[in-house]
């Protein structure tokens, strides 16, 4: 499925490298974009595209933290709680977010499946802590109120998609 649907992008990726194997990481990102995470079927497809064994692809997906090996929330929130951010209150910020979302590290995804909260190591935004990355985009110089506003906005986006406004009859 990936091979046909994303043929053009995959071709462009292959053109960058002398060896097809180098394309495995970029194509895993495409698979994750399509499926939301990397189920075994996706691993098998990527393996076939790159002429690799599925076990090799699975090991890549397991080694790198940005590949999702299980389903996650629609919005994947990564809060840096590493030393430099923690010195500027990132641990407290993280715990406030946990409380606000009603998640913890055992159950890191909200009941409605919209948000997953995880903490991560240094994201290179130490001077703008606390910060978080949501689906690969940075949000910096946060406090809990700013984060709550972002979360409300994202939740509204999901609700709008689920319940599109009905056209008005006049």
């Amino acid at each position: 499925m990936l091979a046909e649907k994303y043929a053009e992008r995959i071709e462009k990726i292959f053109a960058k490298y002398p060896d097809k194997r180098s394309a495995v990481m970029p194509i895993l990102y495409i698979a994750q974009e399509e499926y939301g995470w990397l189920p075994q079927d996706a691993i098998n497809e990527v393996a076939a595209i790159c002429n690799l064994d599925p076990t090799q692809v699975k090991s890549i997906a397991g080694f790198y933290t940005m590949y999702r090996e299980r389903p996650k929330g629609k919005f994947w929130l990564h809060v840096c709680t590493d030393l430099a951010c923690a010195l500027r209150g990132a641990d407290e910020f993280y715990h406030q977010l946990e409380e606000h979302l009603g998640v913890d590290h055992e159950n890191d995804t909200t009941a409605d499946g919209v948000f997953t909260l995880e903490h991560v190591m240094c994201l290179g935004a130490c001077d703008r802590a606390p910060m978080m990355q949501c689906n690969f985009h940075f949000h910096e110089n946060l406090d809990i109120d700013k984060a709550k506003a972002l979360i409300a906005q994202w939740r509204a986006e999901v609700n709008a998609a689920l319940n599109p406004p009905q056209p008005e009859f006049t």
Partner: peptide, 9 residues
């Protein structure tokens, strides 16, 4: 070419 990593120090 740009090559994106995937989260590994």
């Amino acid at each position: 070419f740009v090559h994106l990593g995937a989260g590994a120090y």
